[in-house]
């Protein structure tokens, strides 16, 4: 088998592993933390803190 054919298989394998990593981690994260925590991000925190410091 030629090197480039091996590289093709390696690329399929690496893609599958990386995809699997993301999906497993995603499911693990979603089941470990509550939705309120995960979606608690709000914009403008830095600006609001700067404002508070002035006060």
């Amino acid at each position: 088998m030629e090197t480039w054919q091996l590289l093709e298989y390696a690329a399929w394998g690496v893609s599958a592993l990386l995809g699997l990593f993301m999906v497993i981690d995603w499911l693990k994260t979603d089941t470990t933390y509550s939705e309120d925590v995960l979606t608690s991000s709000r914009e403008g925190e830095l600006e609001a803190m700067t404002e508070e410091h002035k006060i």
Partner: peptide, 17 residues
Amino acid sequence: ITSKEMDGMGPHGTVVG
């Protein structure tokens, strides 16, 4: 990050940003 001792990251209530 969900610890009771931590009161979040910012004044708008961000816990994880």
